[in-house]
Design a protein around this nucleic acid. Structure first.
Lengths: 183, 183
DNA sequence: GTCTATAGTGGGATAGAC
DNA sequence: GTCTATCCCACTATAGAC
């Protein structure tokens, strides 16, 4: 009955991965904080990569869901706003996990290239949809920029201190839409 | 008369750091590509960190210059656009270097925390100026988002393939201004 | 489930010959 | 300036006792 230890490990790892980066966090340090030895971790997770994947999974899932739903969604100004809002929500709901990807992309590619490539692919599907039928370079640039605006929610807590999520949501969504509206 | 070897090392290191990440690049690999042994690198650079700093220097300098100039610049719509344009130019002129910071922030913090903290500080000075006298949370969020729009220029070459720099400059500047104009 | 002990690898860095 | 040889260390991961 020790799903407890397993989640304790997961929680500590999440915190360290998201603050120090994946490569910069050693299993020794994780074990120490949980109050175990390094070896014991391997009873619960078969490798460092396994631990990473189990942490990263919910974000990937939410992400893929959006990318899939979007394909059968008529593109209108409102639906675009809705989709961007969902992106924001998924990111905020998995804030710490998302931070891992920002802290050490290179480390993630090295440790789990499949996950990374998956993420990139979903991102491109979304970008294509966001850009819309007018797939000029300019419009694809705007779609990318709009998405960066959404993604900046992750940096806010770091660079701006405590920010109310609802206010941030409103401001960033408006900003992203303003970017896409430029034609 | 071997400033040549020194720059050859620098060039190879820059390419590897910016594509694979700083931590993921070993001195062995750099040496191999240059056609030297690991030990020989140490004749030219006293450490891996030394090598990194010499590579990263021009970007930091350009950056700091902007942050300094800005402080004695009256804030108007035109001057804001000018400053954002300079930010974009510095980033494009040091594209590969800037990519290092995106590939592996955590690794950079670990290897050269002083540089990173410096960068963050300059960024905050700039953000404050960009946000302007109305320093509401919303306006600071917009300043951050606008800056992310500019920064997205770095991802463009990766995710969108070849993009004309002039067009990108125009599109992203307009987009960033649109974000700041939201009130 | 957790431990001690250790294998095995690869990294940054140094010594000293040439 | 470049080499060979080596040191030292930290890490992931495994073996096997309890």
């Amino acid at each position: 009955m020790d799903g407890d230890t397993r989640t304790a490990i997961r929680d500590v790892a999440l915190e360290l991965f998201s603050t120090k980066g994946f490569e910069q966090t050693s299993l020794r340090e994780i074990a120490e904080r949980v109050g175990l030895t390094k070896a014991s971790l391997y009873y619960h997770y078969s490798s460092k990569q396994d631990l990473l994947l189990s942490i990263v999974d919910p974000l990937i899932a939410g992400w893929r869901q959006i990318a899939e739903d979007v394909e059968e969604l008529a593109r209108s100004r409102e639906s675009v706003r809705l989709v961007l809002g969902r992106c924001l929500d998924v990111m905020l709901a998995n804030r710490a996990v998302a931070l891992i990807f920002m802290q050490d992309p290179a480390g993630l590619v090295a440790a789990a290239s499949a996950v990374w490539e998956d993420l990139v692919e979903q991102g491109q599907r979304l970008n294509t949809w966001l850009a819309g039928p007018d797939s000029s370079t300019a419009q694809r640039l705007r779609a990318m920029a709009a998405f960066e605006v959404i993604r900046s929610a992750l940096g806010a807590s770091i660079y701006l201190g405590e920010v109310d999520d609802d206010e941030m949501r409103a401001v960033l969504l408006d900003a992203a839409m303003a970017v896409l509206d430029q034609r």
